[in-house]
Amino acid sequence: MGRLLIWLRNNVDGVVALVLAVVVGLLAVLDVISVDNVNAAVLLVLALLATTLLRDRHLSAQAVRDANSVQLLYGPEIGHAHTLARRGTEQWIFKGGTGTYIRAVTLRECVENARREQRPLRVQLEILDPTNEALCKTYAQFRSSLSPEADRTGESWTTERTRKEAFATVLAACWYRQRFTFLTIDVGLSTVMTTFRWDLSSSCVIVTQDNPNTPALMFERDKPYYRDFNRELVASFKQTKQVPLSRSEELPLSDEPTVDQVRSLFQLLSLELPAAFTDRDVADIVRRALQPRNPY
C-alpha cells in the first residue's frame, strides 16, 4: 500500500488525466454529456498530458545536468587537470595525507605563477599530525597495504617516512611564506586519517585516492558540489590543530636551512621533533621540503 501511495503521488497528473479521459469517454458513449462538453474535456486532458510531458522533460534535463556535474579522470588526465587548475588560481585548499605532491609540484608552481602575475595567493593545507606516531603508523600501514613496493620516489611507506613527509610540508610552508610576501598559507594538523585527497582551486575541486588505479573525480566551479566541498574543507580545517606559522618570522630561514635552524623552527612552532631524529634525519626533512620527489 505504501508503494502504491508513493507511485500515485509521483504520477498524480497522469492518473488524473487518465481517469478524466475514461470517465468522459464512458459518459459520451452513454449520451450523458454533449459533444461540446466532450471537446472541452478532451482539451483538459491534453493540457494535463502536456504538463506531464513538460515536467518529465525538466526532470530528465536536470538528471543530465547532474550527471555531467562530475568528470571521471584516469591516469594522465589527473595530472593534466591539476596543471589546468593551478593556472591563474588565487587559492588552493588541500586535505590529505602528508602533502608530498603539494610540496613537489603544487605549492611551488602556484607560488611561481602568483609571483609572475604579481597577485596574492591563499593556501590552506590539512595534513596528518606528525607528532602523532600512532596515526602516522596507521597511515603508513594503509599505504603499504595498497602497494608494498617502493613508489616513484624509490621509497616504501613507513612510520618514519610518514612523519618526515608531514614535517617537511610544515617546513616548506614556512620557507615559502618567508619568500613571497603575498602568500597567505595556513597548515592544520589532523588527528584523523583520510583515504581521499581533496585539491580545491579557484576553478574546480579534484578528489583523488592514494590508489593510482582509482579514477579521480572533478567538479567545476559552476557545477553542483563545488561549493559543498569548499564548505566541507573549511569546516574540517577548523577542527584541526593549526600551526602558528607566524612565529616562523622570528627565525629567518636560509635558502638551504641548517639543521639547527630547523630544530629551532619546530620548537617555535611547538612541534617537537622526535627525540630519535638525528641531524641526518633533520637534513632529510630539509631535502623533502625543498627538493621533493614527485611521487606520481
Score class of each variant (00 low, 15 high):
42 V>L: 14
49 L>I: 07
134 A>V: 03
244 P>V: 07
221 R>E: 13
55 R>V: 11
205 V>W: 00
244 P>L: 06
202 S>I: 07
103 R>F: 05
214 T>P: 02
168 A>S: 09
44 L>P: 07
46 L>R: 07
24 V>P: 07
253 L>I: 01
105 V>L: 11
154 G>V: 01
167 F>N: 00
111 V>I: 08
270 S>Y: 03
217 L>Q: 10
65 R>P: 09
257 P>D: 13
253 L>W: 07
144 S>P: 04
266 F>M: 02
125 L>T: 04
20 L>P: 12
239 Q>P: 00
92 W>I: 02
133 E>A: 03
92 W>G: 08
273 L>A: 04
11 N>Y: 09
171 L>A: 06
4 L>A: 13
55 R>M: 10
144 S>T: 00
130 P>K: 01
24 V>S: 15
68 N>S: 13
118 Q>T: 02
3 R>D: 14
196 F>I: 04
260 D>N: 11
42 V>P: 06
91 Q>E: 15
193 M>T: 00
214 T>E: 09
187 V>Q: 04
169 T>D: 10
133 E>M: 02
232 E>S: 12
56 D>M: 11
214 T>Y: 03
70 V>G: 10
218 M>C: 11
246 S>R: 15
118 Q>Y: 03
87 R>T: 01
122 R>M: 01
172 A>F: 02
221 R>T: 05
46 L>S: 11
282 V>Q: 03
94 F>D: 05
8 L>R: 15
80 H>K: 13
248 S>A: 14
219 F>G: 06
12 V>K: 13
113 N>P: 00
139 Y>D: 07
102 I>Y: 05
23 V>Y: 01
46 L>Q: 06
71 Q>N: 10
106 T>D: 12
61 A>R: 15
95 K>L: 10
129 D>Q: 04
127 I>T: 03
214 T>L: 10
78 I>V: 03
92 W>E: 09
141 Q>S: 09
109 E>V: 04
119 R>I: 02
238 K>H: 11
26 L>C: 13
296 Y>H: 07
95 K>R: 15
14 G>W: 04
253 L>V: 03
278 T>Y: 06
72 L>N: 04
192 V>F: 09
227 R>L: 12
56 D>Q: 11
113 N>K: 06
181 T>S: 15
105 V>E: 10
41 A>H: 10
123 V>W: 05
240 T>H: 08
278 T>S: 15
181 T>Q: 15
61 A>M: 12
19 V>M: 10
149 E>Q: 13
286 V>T: 09
35 V>T: 06
154 G>W: 00
117 E>R: 13
23 V>D: 08
166 A>K: 01
109 E>H: 08
103 R>L: 04
72 L>R: 05
263 R>I: 02
255 D>N: 14
59 L>V: 08
248 S>W: 04
240 T>K: 05
203 S>A: 15
102 I>W: 02
209 Q>F: 03
54 L>K: 14
20 L>A: 15
38 V>S: 13
117 E>V: 08
158 T>R: 07
231 R>H: 12
283 A>M: 07
53 L>M: 10
144 S>V: 00
162 T>S: 05
13 D>P: 14
48 L>E: 04
